[in-house]
Write a protein that binds this DNA or RNA. Structure first.
Lengths: 342, 342
DNA sequence: TACTTTCGTGTAATCGATTACATAATTTAA
DNA sequence: TTAAATTATGTAATCGATTACACGAAAGTA
C-alpha cells in the first residue's frame, strides 16, 4: 500500500541519477530545461513527496518551531498561539506546543526536548518562580536557536521579546478608577518575580502618587489567578480599618471573584466599589455586570512574535539581534467601574 | 560554540566503532558491561545528545503527532489539546497544532502537510461542510498513519473516534426543560452535516416526542455559534404566532445571545423563558444568571484520544483497529433554566 | 583546426544513527 | 588439545536528500 517514492525511483525510471532529479526538483539553474520538465512531470506522475525528515537531517533545519506556555487552555495563551500559527503557516513552519504548568523543571525539560528535536526557533512565556539557573536558556542560545519571549519575559542577553506595556496598563487602569472618583484603590498582584506583575504594580503605584493618593502597602494583595483567590482577597480587604473602595486586579479571574464576594455582601458595584481586571478574558464582556479590563491583544502578540522569529531565523550568525517589541495595552471600560453616565 | 557531538566522536575518542557506541547507548544485550559503562560515561562527559532527526529518518518515526482543530482559541479545543499533550508527554511525543478555520481546503492541506512531515499519528475534529471527497483522509490511512477523530467525527473506515453522546446530551437537556414546565421548546442547531449537531437535534426531538410535546419545524433555527446569531434567532422566534417558552441551544454563545436579547425585552429568565446551552464554556458558570449547559469533558476527551492513539500506534499493521469511544455528557443545571427551588 | 569556456550530468561524500552480517576473541565441550 | 559454541566488536549498507567536485560534450574563440 502506497510505496514511498524517492528521488532514486524517479532517477531509475528516467535512467538518470538522483543528483539530477534533486537538482531539477530544486530549480537548480544548471539543469537542462527539457530534463527539468521531464523530471517534474515524472515526479508528479509517480506521486513523489519529498521526505522532510531526510531534508531535515541534511540541512539541520526541521521546519518546526516550539512554543512553551504555562497552559494552553487559557484564552490568552491560546490566542497567542493562534496568532503564531497563522503567521507562520504561510512560511511552512509547524508549531509544536509544550506546557509547563508553571513548573520550572518542566520548563527546562521542554527547552531541552525542543532543542534536541532541532526546532528552528522557540517562543515562550516564562514560568516565573525565581530560578537563578539560566542554563536551559543558555543551552538554547548556544545551539543558535532563536529564542523569543512573549508576555512573560526575562532579562537574558540575546533573547528578543514581545510584551505589552504592563506599567502603562496598570497606570491607565488606576488612573481611570481615580477619575471615577475612587479614593482608596487596592491592587491584586501576582508573583512579582515576573515582570508583568511587577510592572502592573508599579504602574498602579505611580498613578496613585501622580494623583495625590496615598500608597498603602496593606492594599496590595498577592493572589493566584482564580475566582476563589479573588473572593478571599476581598474578604481580607474588607476587614481592614479603612477598607478600599476599588480594586485593580492583575487577573480577570480574581476580579470576578472579588465581584462575586462583594455582591454576596450586597455591596453595590460600581456605586460603592469599583473593580477592574487584566487580560480581557472573554467572560469579562459577557457578564451582565461587565468587567473593566486591559486588553493585551494576544493575537497581535503572537503574530508579532512570529515575525520577530522570521527576522532572526535567516540572519547570519555573526550579528546578534535582540529585539524588544512592546505593544500598547488597551483599557476596556465596562460597567464594573463606570460610575459616571454612559 | 557547542559543537554537536555524534556517536562517531565518542567512538573515535574510545577507539571503537560507532556501531558499538550505538549498541551501548541502546542497551543492546550483546555488549560487554565494561564497554557499556565506558561509553555511557564518555557520552555524558562529552555532553552527547542523540540526533532525533537522524533517528527519525532511519526509523521513519518522527515522534510527533499532529492535531487539527477548527481553531485553537476556543476553550473546548484548547482543553482537548491540553489533554492530548498531557497524556502524550510521558511517552515522548510532541504535539503539532494545525488550524483549519472551518476551511475544507485548509483541512486537506493540513492533512497532507502532517503526512509529509511523517507524524506518527493525527488527531482531529473535522470541518464539517459536506465534501464528498475523502481523498485526504484516505491518503492518511494509505500511509498507515493512525487517524483519530474527536468530537466532530465522520464515518470513514479505519478511523477511530472519541466523541460524546450528543443525542443523550440533547435529550437530557430537553427533558430537563420539560421537567421545569416548559411547553414549547425551541432549538438552535448548527450545520447538520456534522454529526454532533445532527445528534443533538435528534435527542431534542426524541425528548419532545417521548413526553407528549409537539415537534415544530419552525422552532428549529440554524445559527452560527455566536452571540449575535443567538440574538437574531430569538428575535425570529418571538415573531412567531406561538412563540416558544424555552430554547435548547447547541452553542453556549448563541444561548448567551438569546439571554441578552430576552433581557433587553424584559422577558424574565427562567420564569418566562428558559435557556440551555452546550459545551459548558467557562463563562456559563461565571454569569450572574448562570447558564445551564452540557459539559463535554474536553480534557478527558483529549486524554482518551491520546490513549486510543497509543493503543494503535504499535500494533502490527495486519489487524485494522477501529475503536469508537463515546463519553457521557453531563448536564449542568444552572439559573437560566431552573424555575423550581434550589 | 585546436583550444578554451560553458553547460549538463554523473560520482561520491555527507547529515547521524541503526543493524544485518561478518569476524575476531573468548569460553565451553569433548 | 582441538573443535564447537558463545560473546563482543567491526564492516558496511541503509534511511532520502543535497552538493562539492569531476568529467564529457557542446559551443565559442582564435
Amino acid at each position: 500500500m502506497s510505496e514511498k517514492v524517492t528521488i532514486y525511483d524517479i532517477a531509475e525510471k528516467l535512467n538518470i541519477t538522483a543528483a539530477t532529479v534533486s537538482r531539477a526538483l530544486n530549480n537548480n539553474p544548471k539543469i537542462k530545461e527539457a530534463t527539468r520538465e521531464l523530471v517534474l512531470k515524472t515526479a508528479a506522475a509517480m506521486n513523489y513527496k519529498q521526505n522532510k525528515l531526510a531534508l531535515a537531517l541534511k540541512s539541520g533545519r526541521s521546519n518546526n518551531i516550539g512554543v512553551i506556555v504555562p497552559r494552553i487552555d487559557s484564552n490568552f495563551f491560546a490566542s497567542v498561539i493562534r496568532g503564531i500559527e497563522e503567521e507562520l503557516y504561510p512560511h511552512g513552519y509547524q508549531v509544536i506546543i509544550c506546557q509547563t504548568h508553571e513548573s520550572i523543571k518542566r520548563e527546562n525539560e521542554n527547552l531541552h526536548t525542543l532543542v534536541d528535536a532541532q526546532v528552528d526557533g522557540i517562543m515562550m512565556s516564562v514560568t516565573g518562580i525565581s530560578d537563578e539557573n539560566d542554563s536551559a536558556f543558555r543551552h538554547v542560545l548556544e545551539k543558535n536557536v532563536p529564542l523569543i519571549f512573549f508576555d512573560r519575559s526575562k532579562h537574558i542577553d540575546g533573547v528578543s521579546s514581545v510584551t505589552i506595556n504592563d506599567f502603562k496598563g496598570g497606570y491607565l487602569t488606576t488612573k481611570h478608577l481615580i477619575d471615577e472618583g475612587c479614593k482608596a484603590i487596592a491592587h491584586f498582584s501576582g508573583d512579582q518575580s515576573l515582570d508583568i506583575f511587577k510592572n502592573r504594580f508599579l504602574g498602579y503605584k505611580q498613578a496613585l502618587l501622580d494623583n495625590g493618593l496615598e500608597f498603602k502597602e496593606e492594599y496590595v494583595i498577592y493572589t493566584k489567578s482564580s475566582v476563589d483567590a479573588g473572593k478571599e482577597a476581598v474578604d481580607n480587604l474588607l476587614k481592614l480599618d479603612t477598607p478600599p473602595d476599588a480594586v485593580f486586579s492583575s487577573s480577570d479571574f480574581a476580579a470576578l471573584g472579588a465581584i462575586q464576594e462583594l455582591q454576596s455582601r450586597n455591596i453595590s458595584i460600581p456605586k460603592e466599589f469599583c473593580v477592574a481586571g487584566f487580560s480581557n478574558e472573554p467572560f469579562t464582556k459577557f457578564m451582565e455586570l461587565s468587567i473593566t479590563s486591559v486588553d493585551q491583544s494576544p493575537l497581535e502578540m503572537g503574530k508579532m512574535s512570529a515575525r520577530v522569529f522570521l527576522e532572526q531565523v535567516d540572519k547570519t550568525d555573526t550579528i546578534k539581534i535582540e529585539k524588544k517589541v512592546v505593544l500598547a495595552p488597551e483599557l476596556h471600560i465596562r460597567k464594573s467601574s463606570k460610575k459616571t453616565n454612559f
